[in-house]
């Protein structure tokens, strides 16, 4: 007896059983993002059917792929742009169309220029060459979207030296608290967080993929970097984390099913809403402890000596590097007291 595919009954049964086994074996993998690691330390994780994360290239990079092309959240460090572009080309032949920057730090926007140039603007460049349209589309490169404050931090007034070359600057800056685009048949919201890590942070929420790119407001590898000099504050950081918890939805009422919103931090592993709650709670508790010490009249040095972050230092603390535990305590103290 032959089945509809021309297989004998025995072969069909065997094929079905083998298929069932494959499904069974794949079942566990569905819970975890699959990763491919290159020799350069860059890893590519598949989060959704058309949604990837590139880790290890500085800040995490989100990659949304579809018929409209490739949309990235952040571009990583400049030094690894070639590897980032190569990793994207392994995923798809579609051109990079957009980069959305979550802040103006070098590990997020350093790759803007090279990665954008590897892409192609969605705007037709009918004149080609160096004409007006070419200038309007950044030489035909992919567009770079960011809040205006990211542009202000990356650029400089005429005559002054900018932090980044013009080709890395956002081509589409906005100053509204919310910006949205519809790309690859998906609603994408950019939500400005006005005073958290800096004054130029934003979340990027992919509605259909159900993924939020949180930028450096969420950094699972260390205490949140609160750059008070650039407009960051502990109050804004906590408000932003609360907002992130609101945006992310856990799997409920069927909590035994895997799923729920995935949150891509600026650095570190992919998080669930619960992971963000853990992180937010840590920040709130440390804020409360330092606030209490300030109320009791303790100076900054006394507070540092009292080690208000002790319960969390093994997990998030650092004695060296660009963001030490003391730097975090100092940032919280300064933003609570208003002292410079």
């Amino acid at each position: 007896m032959k089945g509809s595919l021309g297989l004998s009954r025995k072969a069909a049964v065997s094929a079905g059983m083998a298929g069932a086994a494959l499904v069974l074996m794949a079942g566990g993998a569905a819970f975890t993002a699959r990763a491919a690691q290159g020799n350069d330390g860059i890893e590519v994780l598949k989060l959704r059917p058309d949604f990837y994360v590139i880790a290890g290239a500085g800040g995490n990079i989100a990659v949304q792929i579809g018929p409209d092309g490739v949309l990235l959240v952040d571009a990583g460090r400049a030094e690894v742009s070639d590897q980032v572009v190569a990793a994207i080309k392994k995923l798809t032949d579609e051109p990079i169309r957009f980069i959305l920057d979550t802040n103006a730090d070098a590990d997020h926007v350093g790759g803007n220029a090279k990665v954008a140039k590897a892409g192609q603007s969605i705007f037709p460049n009918t004149q080609g060459g160096n004409g007006f349209a070419s200038a309007m589309t950044n030489g035909g490169a992919a567009s770079i979207l960011a809040p205006e404050k990211v542009l202000l931090r990356m650029s400089a007034p005429t005559g002054a030296v900018a932090a980044y070359p013009a080709e890395a600057w956002p081509t589409e800056a906005f100053y509204t608290p919310r910006k949205s685009i519809y790309f690859n048949r998906e609603g994408i919201e950019i939500a400005l967080q006005p005073a958290a890590h800096t004054d130029a942070d934003s979340f990027v929420f992919f509605r259909r993929s159900d993924v939020v790119a949180a930028g450096d407001i969420l950094d699972t590898t260390r205490y949140p970097v609160i750059d008070v000099a650039k407009g960051g504050s502990i109050k804004g950081e906590i408000e932003a984390l609360n907002r992130l918890i609101e945006m992310a939805i856990p799997p409920g009422p069927f909590i035994y099913q895997e799923g729920g919103t995935e949150v891509m931090p600026g650095h570190g592993r992919i998080c669930s809403q619960f992971d963000v709650v853990e992180y937010r709670d840590m920040v709130v508790i440390i804020r409360d402890v330092i606030q209490d010490m300030i109320k009791r009249g303790m100076t900054l040095d006394q507070i540092k000596a009292a080690n208000p972050t002790k319960p969390y230092d093994k997990e998030y603390g650092a004695d060296s590097g660009d963001w030490t535990t003391n730097a975090f305590v100092e940032a919280v103290y300064k933003s609570l007291t208003g002292k410079k």
Partner: peptide, 25 residues
């Protein structure tokens, strides 16, 4: 608590960047 699946086929544990499911891996 969630289901614990003990994989016996020698598969590798996930990437350091992967999400942590409720049941772990």
């Amino acid at each position: 608590r969630d289901t614990t699946t003990i994989w016996m086929d020698g598969r590798a544990h996930p990437s350091q960047y992967a999400p942590h499911p409720k049941g772990g891996f």
